[in-house]
Amino acid sequence: MAGTPRRMRPLRNIYAKIAAIPMVLTALVVFVGGTLWTVTYSFTNSKLLPKLNFVGLDQYERLWSNSLWLTSIQNLMIFGILSAVLTITMGFLLAVLMDQKIRFEDTFRTIMLYPFALSFVVTGLVWQWLLNPDLGIQEFVRGLGFATFEFDPLSNPDTVLYGLLIAGLWQGTGFVMCIMLAGLRGIDEDIWKAVRVDGIPRWKTYIFVVIPMMRPVFITTLVLVASGIIRLYDLVVAQTSGGPGNASQVPAMYVYRYMFTAQNLGQGFAASTMMLLSVLIVLIPWAYLEFGGKKNG
């Protein structure tokens, strides 16, 4: 090719490349590098300090024979399934109610969403107080004359998860409601006209027309809710500190304990790798559904 030489490729967009350095470092060093580092060290017997002394799957064997971990996993499963099902169902139902051309929509939305602006610590502490057996809701109802009324989930290992669930729903449902409402508003207005012309009852329209159309919204919501649940930490620390006993322990607390207080890094790494694995189980099918078919998602 004759004429002036091509400008050298790496020098094109040079400012854009410089400006992207923080992003590149974050993506490669922290997200990819950090993850690989932790996964690698989960195969070592690191105690107080990380050491590359490989012991195979020892940490994982110990992890899965540790009753604290098993409790944590079980708790997370129960809490997670209930929480996901309930937030999404309630969030959708509330969104449907909000979509009935009601008055004061903004007020209702503001009320339902404000807990989401609060810290989990605040949520946990408020509900700890509301569920206080001596001075909270239980005592209030007893004071109304129901002397045998029992509502003390936080003191009982069998029910403590439901106490957490009440608080979690209080904080998270408004958020799901907002996403669902956005999804409902995203549905073509002509659909509503069409079903009215066809004389299809409203509840049927929601079940057979609207919900199938909102499938992507449901999936995205599920992914968001699920990835939040797996991280569940602050709420439990604040509301129950993992108690009574270890009845409300969750994996994130297990990781923290072994990494930063029990000085058994390898155990912490193995536990956090298991957390990663559980996220991937949620994430990969979703990414496949979301981006699999088309090229540019």
Binding site: M23, V30, G34, W37, I230, V255, M259, V279
Partner: peptide, 24 residues
């Protein structure tokens, strides 16, 4: 590609990156 990593990274539990960041 970096953007995709970033978005996927936001779903990774923070716990797995806690200690490497301590070292960093």
């Amino acid at each position: 590609v970096f953007f995709t990593i970033l978005i996927f990274g936001s779903f990774i539990p923070y716990q797995i990156m806690l200690y490497p960041i301590v070292i960093l």
